[in-house]
Nucleic acid binder design. Sequence first.
RNA 1: GGGCACGUGGUGUAGCUUGGAUAGCACGGCAGCUUGCGGAGCUGUUGGCCGCGGGUUCAAAUCCCGCCGUGCCCGCCA
Length: 636
Amino acid sequence: MAGLHSSSPSPSSTVRQELVSSLKKAMASAYPEAGLSDDELMLSITVPQGQEWDLSSSIAFRLAKKLGANPAEIAGKLSGLMPAGNYVASVEATNGYLNARLDERKYTSLVLARIRDEGGAYGTSAMGEGRKVIVESPSANPAHPWHVGTLRNALLGNVVSNLFEACSYEAEREDYIDDLGLQVATALWGWINMGDKPDKKFDQWLGELYVRVNREMGQRPEVKKQVEALNKEMEDGVSQQARAGREMAERCVMAHQQTAFDYGIYRDVMIWESDIVRSHLLSKALDISSGILEKPSDGKYAGAVVIKLDRITPFAGELAGSREDAKVIVRSNGTATYIGKDFAFHAWKFGLIDAGFKYRKFMDQPNGKPIYSTAPEGSPMQFGNVERAINVIGGEQAYEQQIMRVMFSLIGHEEITRGLFHLAYGRVNIEGEKLSARSGNWLGDGRNYTADDLLAEATKRAMEIAQKSEKITDRQNLEHISRAVALSAIKFEYLKIATEKDITFSWQNALNFEGNSGPYVLYTYARAMRILGKSASAAAMSDSDVSQITRGQDFQLVKLMGMAQDTVEKACTELRPSVVTDYLLGLSSLFSKFYETMPVVKGGDAKNVRLEVVRSFTAVASNMLSLLGIATVSEM
RNA sequence: GGGCACGUGGUGUAGCUUGGAUAGCACGGCAGCUUGCGGAGCUGUUGGCCGCGGGUUCAAAUCCCGCCGUGCCCGCCA
C-alpha cells in the first residue's frame, strides 16, 4: 500500500544523482585539481529544450574558467570517461555541453512503477518531516463579503498549506479575525441605527450596509463621531456594544465560511482580535520588548509607547523610507496599534509568550474537521508554538511586516525573524480601479465583484457549455460537473499568476475556459479517463511491454511525470503555486500531443505500456490538481 | 523627499533565486484537422531592440550600477 508521503527521491533526481556521480568520477580521473562540489555539479544539470537529449550539464564551461582551458576539449575528455550507467545510456560532448541520453525503457519502468506503487502519495515529499508551520489567511474583515481580492488571499493560503502538507510539514491553517477596529464599528453603527433586517446572505447584506454608513459618515460628521465612540467601546470587551459587535462579526464570519466551503477551503482555528485584547497579550509583549521601547513624556509622541526608527534602520535599511522617526506601538489612550497587536500576536505564535487563550468549536466543516475559535469562555487547546509562520497578506503591508520582523531581532529572537515570512501578494484591481470595500465599488451592476458572485457566474457559464456536451452520460450530474469546472477555472486563473504580480480582474478572463486554464487540464484528464474506460482489461504491464516505449511523445510524458516531486518541493520552498500550474499545463499539453499521435486502445503491441502511461497521467494530474484544491471530473 | 514591488510579441503571462546551446505558453489574427481514444482539443502560421543606457563574463531576460515608466507604502487607521 502507498504511504501517506513518498520517502524516496524522485525518479528525476535519481537519474540526476547518477549523472553527478558519473561526472564526479570522470573529473576525479581527468581533472583531480578541479575541486567542484557536488552541489555545483547538480546545479549544472538542466533538461535541454530540444528533444535530442534528456539531461545536459554545462560544467565544462565552469571547469574551463578554473583551468584556463577550452570547454569543448574538457567536455570531450569527460564524456570519454563516462560509461553507460543504470539509467544513463550514453553521454556525449556537444559544443562544450555534456549531453546525456537516458535508457528510455529502464527509466520508464522506474517512473511507472513508482506512480503505480505510491498512488495518491506520488509527488509528495518527506522534506518537512517533524516541522510545524502556521499559515495565516485570509483574515478578511468581518464587515463585508469576500471580494475578488480576498479570494486571492484565501486561495493562496489554501494552496501554500496544501504544499506544506504534501512536503510532510504539519500545517496549522489559521484565520485572524479583526472584530475590532473602525470597519466593524462602522457596520455595527448601521446594524444598530439603520433598522434593516438581513434579507440575503449575511455578509453581503452587511457589506451593503457598511457601504451606506460610510457614505453617511462622509455627509454627516456626527455619524463619524458616533462610529469612533462605538469603536472605543468595543475595545473594552464587556459592554453591550462589545458583545453586539462580536455577535455581528460572528454572523458575518459564518457567512464567510459558507463562501470558503463553496471554494473547498477549510481551516483549523480562528483567532479573534477581541480575544487577543482580552488576554492581555499586549502587556506581556511589552514586558519582553521593554528594552527597545520608549515612552516619551512630551512632544509629538507624549504618553504613547513607541519604537524609534533609528533603532530599526541599521538592520533594515529599506525602512529608512519613512517621514516619521518613530512607530507607535501603544497609543496614548492605552490601546494598541495594529503593529502593537500584531507583534504581540506573533510573539504568541512562536511560543514566546503565553496568551492563555480559550477555545470552543466554532462550526463543523464539510471536510469533517471542526473549526476551533478563541472565545471568552472555552477550554485550553494546543495551537501556535511554531518555528515557522507564513503570513498571507497584501504587499501593501510590507513595511509593517518588516518592522515587526526587525523588532524580533532587536529583542534577541533572530530565529523568529528568520521563521516569519510575509507572503506578499499583488493587488487585485477591477478595470484599473483600486478595489475598495469601503467605497463599495465591489458592488457591480447585476453581478458583484465578490467571491460568491464570481462562482455563481462561472458555474452558470460552465453549465451552458456542459448542457451542450454530448459526452456527459450522467445528466443528473450536470450541476456537480459545472461546479467543478467553474472552480477549476477560477482557481487556476488566480494561481497561475505569480504571487507578487498585480491582477486586473476581468469577467472575460475569469470566465474563459480555454487555453492555459483549469478546464483545459480537467478536459485532458477526462479524455484520459475515457481511454481507460474503453479498454476493459487492466492487465498489469510486463517488462516486455516497456520495450514498446519510443523516444517520442510517450517518453517525453514519462520524463515529465518523473518530475512531480521536484515540482512540489520547489513550489513549497519558494511558496509559489504557479510552479504547480505551470507543471500541470505542460503535463496536459504533452498528454494531448501523446494521445493525438499515439493510438492507445488500438496501439497493438504498444497498447499495454501506453495504457499504463495513461493511467499514470491520471494519477499524477489528479495528485497535482488536488494540491491546488481542484477536483477532477471523469467527463465534462 | 524616501522605501518596496513590477516592466518580456497587439493582449495576458512563464523563465530571473542557482547566468549557458533556437526566450516557453495562452488569447487575438490567418490557414488547416472530426465515418479515428472526446473540437473545452490538435497542427501550421503571424508577431519579441526581454523598459532604456552602461558594466561584469567565453556567455546576460537572468548578476552589478545608473536612469525611465507604473503601482503600492512611509497614520496614535487596520
